[in-house]
Design a protein around this nucleic acid. Sequence first.
DNA 1: ATCTGATGTAATATATAAATTTCATATGTT
DNA 2: AACATATGAAATTTATATATTACATCAGAT
Lengths: 64, 64
Amino acid sequence: MKNKVKITRMELSITQEQLAKKVGATRQTIGLIEKGEYNPSLHLCMTIAKELGKTLDELFWEVE
Amino acid sequence: MKNKVKITRMELSITQEQLAKKVGATRQTIGLIEKGEYNPSLHLCMTIAKELGKTLDELFWEVE
DNA sequence: ATCTGATGTAATATATAAATTTCATATGTT
DNA sequence: AACATATGAAATTTATATATTACATCAGAT
């Protein structure tokens, strides 16, 4: 399950840990989501999307 | 966490059980997601969206 | 009134997301 | 060289999504 979290976070020049703190998750969880081989909850996906200024579709939809 | 799964499913005139079978879930899980007080996995959300002919945003984004 | 299909709901079991802790590694900086 | 920051990764624990089973109600059809 690939996505655009990592590239979007890097565009904003913030670290995994900074994003994690903002969305109430841990750095490890962010790392696993960015890695792609993971199945996060919808709630966490929405929180991350809002924090990164994107929508669900922009981050997670149809990303090979 | 409200969404548009129920209204979209009803527009397609399929039952919870039919949708459940198509997406590899149970009727109860579909019922709970439609009810809104639930936090499904991203993978299940994407499978449901594709089955209903919608995107993630259309079903789950910014639905109060 | 009975039967069937559709849905609501609850209790328990299982699978897995997410947290926690820890260690490794790579890069930059002093 | 030593130190700090950022990330990868693994093991264990905890929380919760999901399945399973079961029983209820309601609508429509017979």
